[in-house]
Structures are given as C-alpha cells and as structure tokens.
Design a protein around this nucleic acid. Sequence first.
DNA 1: GATCCGTGGCC
DNA 2: TGGCCAAGGAT
Length: 361
Amino acid sequence: MTPDASLLLHWYDHHRRTLPWRAAPGQQADPYHVWLSEIMLQQTVVQTVIPYYQRFLARFPTVDALAEAPQEEVLQLWAGLGYYARARNLHACAQAVHKLRAFPRTVEGLQTLPGIGAYTSRAIAAIAFNIPTVPVDGNVERITARLNAVEDPLPAARPLLARLASHLNDDPAAQARPSDFAQALFDLGASLCSPRSPSCLTCPWRDGCLARARNMAEALPARQKKKARPTRHAILFRVIDPEGRVLLRSRPPEGLLGGTDDLPGTPWSESQSTPSPARLAETAFTRYAPLQAQWEDCGEVKHIFSHFTLLVRIYGCTIPAQSNYPIPPKHGRFRFLKEAVLSSVMKKCLLVGDRHRPVPG
DNA sequence: GATCCGTGGCC
DNA sequence: TGGCCAAGGAT
C-alpha cells in the first residue's frame, strides 16, 4: 500500500530533529554538509557522528579544503569512527568533486563517486537537491517491511523492500517536498518506528500499516541468522622510549584498519591454528618481539570487530635513557600519541595496564 | 549472493 | 554476558 505522505510530513513538521548538518526549515541544505554527514552515518549512529562531523567541518569548511588536505590528516580526524575505507573514499571523493567543480546533481552522477552507492546517492539527491527519490537505508527498510508486513528475512528481502519503498514516492505530496520526505522517513524510523518496541499508537501511518494490524510490527523485518564470530589471538608489544613515545607500525593502506597505526607483534591468528598460550608467547618473544627485553605482562584486551573477536595480550617494556637498542624498521618507529592514527582497538591496547604506557597526548 | 570492513550502546 | 543493531559500499 502507499500511505498518505502528507500525514508523515505533518508529523515531521512538528517533531523534526535538529541535527548539525540539517538546514533550517524552508532552507536548502549545503551539499557538502549533506554528503559529509551521510558518509559518516553509514552504519553509524547519530550520537557517535556528531562530534566527528563538527571537527571535520571546523577543520575542512569546504569540500575543496578537504580535497587539498593530506590523507594522513583526514585519517587522523577519522580515527575511532571505524570502517576506515570510508575515510579513504571520502578523501578521493572530495578530490573528484574538486575537479568537477561541484557535486553532480543526479543520482547516477553521484553514484559514480567513490564511497557513494545506491543509498547515499539518493540521500544526497533528495536532501541536498530536492530530487524526488527514496533513499532506502535500514530505517526505510524497516518501515517498508512493517507497512507491507513483509516476512521474508533480510538480506534476501532487500530488492523487494527497495521496490516497495520506491512507491512511497507515488504520492504527489511526497514529490512536492523530497528533502523533507526523506528526512521524515529517517526521523520516523529513529523515533516511532524503531527496531524495538515501536510506538504504533502515535504513528502518523498507523492506519494503513499491515504489521500493526497483525500485531507483528516489533518482529519485522526478519533477519537471516548470522554465523558465529570466530576468535583470533595476538600478542602485541608496547615499547616506550625515554621520551614517552611508543613504537608503532603503519598498517597497509587497504584492508582491516587500513592506514591506521598499530603495535608490533604476532599475526592475528585464527583460534584453530593457535598453539597453546604458552607456546604462542614463546614464539612471540623469539620471533616477533621488536627487541630482547624483560617483558612485563600489561594485561589483555578484548575487542569485537564485525566479523571476528580479537583477544590481545600486551607485553611492555620501557627503554632506559642513554641506551641504544637498535630496532629493525619493520617493527615501526617511535611516535607521540598525537602524531598517530589510532583505531579504537589500538587505543585500548595502548592504555591497558598501568606500566609502560606512552605519555598522554 | 556472500564476504569483508569498526565501533559503541542496549537489553 | 553475548547477540543485536546502526543514515552501506566495495569486491
């Protein structure tokens, strides 16, 4: 069914959330602001994004400023947000837009840019350029699954939900305010039509909603069961120099935590092929330690990634002043914390325990 | 279609 | 505690 768009827009006019990247009512949003926020919001909640968004905008007021910045600085500002390919693509996209002199104003044109896919292209087109299109994110999938009582599990139901969602735009009232309509869908999904305990009683679309009629809103959309997360183990070494710097490597530019810095140590092995902890430690000290030292156990860090759990044992040592310990470059170089690009997992690894810690920065 | 790719909050 | 989920994209 196609619900009444004017009911949703009326609700939105009274319950609209104020967000840093949103234009004031009746105003046109800045495409740069919309794009930057949408990239950050991919798989990331609003409250996490807000401080990052503010820092980015303060440092890079325009897309050209972002394009001209060194990638290292972009990554540093991004550090902690996760999915670091987004930062790489963000930078590449800024440079492409800089060359084009402006953001493309069509869904197809936007989608040719790095980091902009089916969802983000439509979000920018609708919000920044007022083009009548429905961006289908997790919110819109959930709303659509409930309106139509679609019981097929995600992700297989995705094409069906996208097709159904596109019909939300059939209502001329939606096409009259594409930017507001898209954002109204997000606000509805974030507040009333939430994943758990949806507030159907006050929903502007309660009357036509099949899931509500069948009392199954909370159970939708169904999802395919995810397979269990394996555990990987590693031993990492925290070497502090007399100035309080820490020995850090640069990770390869692509792949897991691409472009961030990390502590030297063993590979992050699968638990299957992992020898006993004692054996792993022995191998670590002889094969992977950056130097021979009296290693002190600084503790364990557990970190959950999207597709595996990491258990890290940290061993630390502090190099005495006026001494010379040659360290092969493959183990990294000494850096102050503020010079480093630190993922959340590495921040944990640097802070655990109370000895052999780098100076705060 | 399936997999890889972070992080933090919630119950 | 552990599983779930969030304004997805690239390969």
